[in-house]
Design a protein around this nucleic acid. Structure first.
Lengths: 325, 325
DNA sequence: GAAAATATGTCAAGCGGTTGACATACAAAA
DNA sequence: TTTTGTATGTCAACCGCTTGACATATTTTC
């Protein structure tokens, strides 16, 4: 492959001049600039980003660590992060931790080795202590981590409230909340709190059920949902902690011959594509994923500029009414 | 951050020795090795991959270019590619071309600048000529490209045949195929050919309908599917060219009060998660995505070793029976 | 006891760009 | 006429690591 030097020789200038053209520094005549660009095209030259990064001591790479890629929420998140990053000239190093602690750590090391500008951590929490001497900004999304990282999350509590209030306003009086993973100290736990609070305030019968991390790793909640419904006779409203769970709930209800929304009303969470692909479509709480992604990239940039960052950054959610309620 | 030199000084050896330890080259006593590792841990040292790559002239990075990330097929593909890559020590540079030609080209340049070991191109075809002087192995997945790249695809023709034969064996006599993008010369076109061939052989009434790339960019086929069904009265079997289209077909049928599988039997393509999340679940043609991803990585490695590669590599598909037929 | 294997060290070039310091032109402005 | 601004060139260090060449020990092995 052509190098800076090749370009310089061919254009009959010095490497310094070519470098000036590429980096837009110092004085360069329009003529020289043109000539250099011509030669670059001729030689099919592409500056070696490795060398540049090494020299400049920065990479414009953002590492993303997620526990799943096919999970529609993370797919959406990744997509939005890639987009936000690309808009600011960053590229994405994608890591799938498969919700395993050791893989997560490995990937963090990997990101570090590659001198990423920042890490967006969407995977479950490794020991926060591990993060301490990282020397790289870490932004978490919907994860608790504390140790000097920025935590971006949506207003989960409010989301729980909105969903529950909506169910109650639809006439439901016996609610079930199928929640995310137990014992993981996740921001999403607040969804259950919002749920419980509203049910309590309205004096509505309610029950919260939590999945295990074993289920999370396969993303197959069916058996679990069936059991939950069977053990909650008379339920007339379900608040699922993700659209994925909600979609599976629709299937179980179909199997059990329970009509949605006639017999049971259902609200999901996330507002990912799948909420629009089921029959009926899913009423859900919309996470502002695009904004969350944009802020993640923004915070990485700010951190690089030495600006102070918030410990926590919470974005508002909203209810999207569809056909499951 | 700590450097090789720091480690060497602290361990009271030379950088050469440390490098030998890290790269497992030459003679090193167990004692020295241990000492070096200790110091590395002490200093929280991570070798700078940029410098390594620059020096070694190879990166262990694979660029993936897809037209969509949230599309379940690509999400699955990305996930499998990441996994196959990680198993062989490669990392992933993720690029979302949004099905736009210019973005695709940009990303190819970007991959080149970053000296990726290879590019897995799942996006639509840029001008093949652009690929010629790339000096980087390019593997396409389900795309035609010719110009010295390896094309991995599943047996689309056979897939079309399997789906159609299945529908006919279920008793269907009036078939509709809702196909992928028109005028793009994609391997997936063979699905329609298989469909037509089998229908012809059985003397079954049939019709093929093609979507436009405008629809592909939003992934919302609803209107289009509705129109297709309305314009094909008496249809009793639909072969959709993706599970995503099949899922939307289920919704449209529900709206139109057409029961699946009683009135219309439906077969999808891909076998992605969504096929299991709809009601009814979708009978589909399974693409061996894992194998395709593994071969993609394998071919990149072989190319790096100077081994000759096939022009085309076709993998077998299979029918997965679910509840939509 | 000599050859071979093992275990380090020394030195320095190279990977491909970036960048600061400094020199040298020539033009336009004061 | 002197400044100042513009446009390049020259030189070389530096980013952090790899690697080949060569030297020098100490152990093993035959």
């Amino acid at each position: 492959m052509a190098t800076l030097k090749d370009v310089a020789e061919r254009a009959e200038v010095t490497v310094t001049t070519v470098s000036r053209v590429i980096n837009n520094r110092g004085y360069i005549s329009e003529q020289t600039r043109k000539k250099v660009f011509e030669v670059m095209k001729e030689l099919n030259y592409q500056p070696n980003e490795l060398a540049r990064s090494l020299s400049k001591q920065r990479t414009n790479t953002i590492g993303i660590i997620v526990p799943h890629i096919v999970h529609p929420y993370f797919a959406k998140l990744i997509s939005n992060l890639e987009n936000a990053a690309a808009n600011k000239g960053y590229k994405i190093l994608l890591c799938n931790s498969k919700a395993k602690n050791e893989k997560e750590l490995e990937y963090i090391e990997m990101c570090k080795s590659n001198r990423v500008s920042g890490i967006v951590l969407c995977s479950r929490n490794v020991d926060a202590a591990e993060m301490k001497n990282l020397e790289i900004p870490v932004i978490t999304i919907e994860r608790n981590l504390e140790a000097g990282t920025v935590g971006i999350e949506c207003d989960n509590y409010q989301g729980g409230r909105l969903a529950t209030e909506h169910l109650i306003s639809c006439g439901c009086r016996n609610l079930l909340h199928i929640s995310g993973i137990k014992n993981e100290n996740m921001p999403a736990d607040a969804r259950a709190e919002g749920f419980t609070a509203v049910c309590g305030a309205h004096g509505v019968k309610h029950k919260v059920i939590q999945t295990t991390s074993r289920i999370y790793s396969t993303l197959d909640y069916h058996q679990y949902i069936r059991q939950a419904i069977e053990e909650a006779p008379g339920v007339d409203g379900i608040f699922a902690s993700s659209d994925l769970i909600a979609a599976q709930t629709i299937q179980i209800c179909a199997e059990m011959n329970i009509r949605i929304p006639e017999k049971i009303r259902l609200v999901g969470f996330d507002d990912v594509d799948i909420a629009k692909l089921t029959t009926p479509t899913i009423t859900t709480i919309r996470q502002p994923v695009r904004e969350m992604a944009e802020w993640a990239v923004e915070f990485i940039e700010r951190s690089l500029n030495g600006e102070a960052l918030p410990e926590q950054f919470k974005l508002p959610v909203s209810l999207v009414k569809r056909n499951s309620t």
